[in-house]
Design a protein around this nucleic acid. Structure first.
Length: 842
RNA sequence: GGGCCCUUAGCUCAGGGGUAGAGCGCUUCCUUGACGCGGAAGAGGCCAGAGGUUCAAAUCCUCUAGGGCCCACCA
């Protein structure tokens, strides 16, 4: 055996060997690009660093990698960075649980604090800086593990372009982009009701909401009407009677029309509230008249704003009813009733309020149980409350039809794969209820880079913040001092305060094309990669990551951040539910790589149609592994035959027929990849490959073992077709193809040219020659299989009856068919297709 | 309540007006000059249901039923 072909090739261990060599040799390094047109840039999703990677993540990344490898082989300089999304609440939650700590910004920094071996129990409060240090430690560990998984999977990312969303350079970009939004009037601050998570004690944005069906109950309550007639309302939140500011009914509702303009008295508290009309009130719901509270739900906010109602908030940011009775509750009895609610959480207050209403006779009948959708923060465990607070917003078209239309046009201009994902963008934008709330009252994130002047009475001036120059970014207003001030002026009348909030994670990750492209610090790079070619991501974050990236790019550059959005599906459990992280973690990616090979896992992932949710199916991985092994063995056969042959030696009709068929496969795989349909490219390559091994190899085997020009023709055709197959498979099975390539070629297959039919079109012939010959061989096999004898059993008679034309094709194949069938000869008759094969007597 | 996707062999999925496809699994064989981590052959389907368009429908249209996802103002 010549070359470096091993006797017993194996796919085990290829991952470690080749991933290390690719790194050493810089195979995937982004370099040498002179102009944007040479580059293919990918806006890789930075995985959230919280725990471990699961199979769903591996799935989407393998698909994108196949496209990246294709583009690289097509000659593009592929810019394929990786990022870790390590800032934000997921990391905080994980750190809290992992170490048993909480963050208390009022505590001083403890320079001697060391991470505990075991989590503190009960949780120990830490200074903000200590807490942030723990976040860095834990994310650092997770990120090393993530990198190991992605390297073993064989992602062709350029690891020298790794970024993280908490890095100083990222913070600088995030702050710079925000300050530019601010300068152009696209960012603004406002004191307003916001959806508030009382556990995390932070505002949350519309995109982070989810509705969950929760049990509740309608309570029918009696209000005192101005004319003495009682008014019945139904509510699921009787505890909010004390924050009631109005009753509202539909303007056309005849039952209540006479009452508009009059007042009613609230039960228990006897507070006088106006009865008002608003078209949002639904005559079909409850009694047709609703209690407006500040604030029980977002409808309340609408009524409060549009009807200019009082503000009577009672629920604090910790989710408890405020301690002192509010001043609008006046009578002693009412104040005594409020005292029962003070300090209680919502559920406790509700139970007590129902008791009070029952005792006073103002609860009619029994509460009637219902299930209804309740708004939650998607990462939260308790229903959101609505509190009034000062927050920062970025305009996203939610309150501005002009901008909204521009963003809709951007979504239309984007090329979506698959196409039907486009409507999700449109629906989300059309449904926006307000601007994008970007400030969060959390700790581990990018600080909002602003300070506020304090006037003589110590009141901050939010309308005219102190803005740092871009050259000084990033800043931390909690510890840095603005120009023109001294540190000891912090918090002093006439001095300043820093904004202690941080940005929402999406406010930073919406800038990934800028972060990866080093916007503002490496202009040459940025010009080469922006706007990018491809944004791969999951469909569940179209409303967040995709939309917010479009918003930021539109505001900053007036253009789309990428040309294509490729949306991958989800991994489903066998019961068709989205595979949960906990279940996905039962089998870790590393364990699957060990069992099926990274190539096997990649085969499974890239077999799935773009955008399609796909069952978690290890049997697909086994098939991928089998394919990889088949490639090894077939390659061993081909490369063991002869030294490098001259392509010009391909003269035999059967060899040319095979190459003719291969040219078709190359064309269809290329066309599929150009449409981002990697799965179709893989399927057509794979089908052709199995036909190649099962039929063509068997037919030419005898001839190829010989010598002379007939043998040389087969040897040359085999080598050429193997080279083509290896390159067609390289985007999917990078390890096994690289291994085989290394047996006989210089350099990496991943830097080799994508095969083109034009490479060997002068050597192709009519593929029908191969088809007809293979069909006859298949019939011979059937005869032998039916007779339960070996495929090598000799035939004493072989007769093909067929059309003259097809017989000519088989004749053109020469003696290959007779050899493969182990017949003495073959006879031909004109007539309807039939094969007669008789076994030689044993 | 609105929208999107899916429903094809036991399983996982391709196909997308012209005779129903693949792999796995199953059945029956083959012991090897690439491969037993092999190889060959075979059985197996009213293409969810009902209407329509068409010479022709798994494919296009309408409706229905399941499944999944996204969204929606919690009275």
């Amino acid at each position: 055996m010549n070359r470096n072909v091993p006797d017993k090739p194996t796919i085990d261990g290829l991952e470690a060997r080749w991933s290390a060599r690719w790194e050493e040799q810089g195979v995937y390094r982004f370099r040498g690009a002179e102009s944007r047109s040479e580059v293919y840039a990918i806006d890789t999703p930075p995985p959230t660093v919280s725990g471990s990677l699961h199979m769903g993540t591996v799935f989407g990344y393998a698909q994108t990698d196949s496209v990246a490898r294709y583009q690289r082989m097509k000659g593009k300089k592929v810019f394929y960075p990786m990022g870790w999304d390590d800032n934000g609440l997921p990391t905080e939650r994980r750190v809290q649980a992992y170490y048993g700590v909480t963050c208390d910004p009022s505590l001083p920094y403890d320079p001697d604090f060391a991470p505990p071996e075991e989590p503190f129990d009960p949780p120990r409060p830490l200074a903000r800086r200590n807490f942030v240090e723990l976040c860095h430690i834990l994310t650092g560990e997770d990120e090393r593990a993530f990198e190991e998984v992605f390297r073993t999977l064989g992602l062709s990312v350029d690891w020298s372009h790794l970024y993280t969303t908490i890095a100083e350079s990222t913070q600088a970009i995030s702050q710079r982009a925000f300050l530019r939004n601010l300068a152009r009037g696209e960012a603004y601050t406002q004191e307003a009701p916001v959806l508030w998570d009382t556990d995390f004690q932070t505002a949350v944005a519309q995109a982070e909401l989810e509705d969950r069906e929760r049990p509740g109950a309608y309570h029918r309550l009696v209000f005192g009407g101005g004319n003495g007639e009682p008014i019945h309302i139904e509510t699921t939140r009787p505890e909010l009677v004390c924050s009631c500011v109005a009753l509202v009914a539909h303007p056309d509702d005849d039952r209540y029309r006479p009452l508009f303009g009059s007042t009613a008295l609230t039960p228990i508290f006897g507070v006088e509230v106006p009865i008002v009309a608003h078209p949002l009130a639904d005559p079909e719901k409850g009694t047709g008249v609703a209690m407006v509270c500040t604030f029980g739900d977002t409808a309340d906010v609408t009524w409060w704003r549009e009807l200019d109602l009082e503000t009577r908030a009672v629920i604090g940011r910790d989710g408890r009813f405020r301690e002192e009775a509010p001043d609008w509750i006046e009578s002693d009895a009412a104040r005594a009733a409020y005292a029962d609610l003070a300090g209680k959480y919502v559920n406790q207050a509700r139970r007590r309020m129902v008791e009070l209403l029952g005792e006073s006779g103002e609860l009619v009948g029994e509460p009637s149980p219902i299930t209804h959708p309740v708004k939650f923060y998607e990462r939260g465990d308790r229903p959101l409350e609505i509190v009034t607070s000062r927050q920062w917003y970025i305009r996203n078209g939610g309150r501005d039809v002009g901008l909204r239309d521009q963003l809709l046009a951007e979504g239309d201009a984007l090329r979506w794969v698959p196409e039907y994902m486009r409507v999700r963008f449109r629906h989300w934008v059309e449904g926006l209820a307000g601007d994008w709330l970007v400030s969060r009252q959390r700790f581990f994130g990018v600080p909002i880079p602003l300070w506020y002047r304090l006037d003589e009475s110590g009141e901050p001036d939010y309308e005219d913040p102190i803005i740092p120059p871009e050259t000084e970014l990033p800043v931390d207003p909690g510890s840095d001092v603005p120009a023109g001030y001294r540190a000891d002026q912090r918090g002093i009348p006439g001095g300043f305060i820093g904004d202690l909030d941080i940005f929402d994670t999406w406010a930073t990750s919406s800038l990934t094309p800028l972060i990866a492209g080093r916007w503002g610090s490496d202009d040459k790079l940025f010009q080469l990669v922006f706007p990018m070619d491809q944004r791969p991501q999951g469909h569940e974050i179209i409303r967040t990551w995709l939309f917010s990236t479009v918003v930021r790019s539109h505001l900053e550059f007036g253009r789309l951040p990428w040309e294509h959005a490729t949306i991958n599906g989800w991994i489903l459990d066998p019961d068709r539910k989205k595979m949960s992280k906990s279940k996905g973690n039962v089998v870790t990616p590393m364990a699957l790589f060990a069992e099926h090979g990274a190539d096997g896992v990649r085969y499974w992932a890239t077999s799935a149609r773009p955008g399609a949710d796909t069952a978690y199916d290890e049997s697909q991985m086994k098939i991928g592994r089998r394919l990889a092994i088949k490639i090894l063995n077939a390659s061993r056969f081909v490369l063991g035959l002869a030294e490098d042959a001259e392509p010009g030696a391909v003269t035999q009709a059967l060899d040319r027929a095979m190459l003719g068929r291969l040219a078709e496969v190359v064309s269809s795989a290329t066309a599929a990849f150009d449409e981002y349909d990697y799965a179709k490219a893989l399927a057509s390559t794979e089908t052709a490959f199995w036909a190649w091994t099962d039929d063509y190899l068997e037919l030419v085997k005898g001839r190829a073992y010989g010598d002379g020009s007939d043998a040389a023709s087969a040897q040359a055709a085999l080598q050429l077709s193997l080279s083509v197959f290896l390159r067609l498979f390289a985007p999917f099975l990078p390890y096994v193809t690289e291994e085989v390539w290394s047996w006989w070629k210089e350099g990496s297959v991943h830097l080799a040219a994508w095969p083109l039919a034009s490479e060997f079109e002068s050597l192709t012939g009519d593929p029908i020659v191969l088809d007809v010959t293979a069909e006859v061989l298949s019939q011979v096999r059937r005869v032998k299989s039916d007779a339960k004898v070996s495929m090598k059993a000799p035939l004493q008679l072989l007769v093909l009856t067929d059309s003259a034309d097809r017989i000519d094709k088989v004749r053109a194949a020469g003696t290959d068919l007779v050899d493969a069938a182990n017949a003495k000869s073959i006879d031909f008759e004109i007539g309807p297709f039939e094969i007669r094969a008789e076994l030689a007597p044993a």
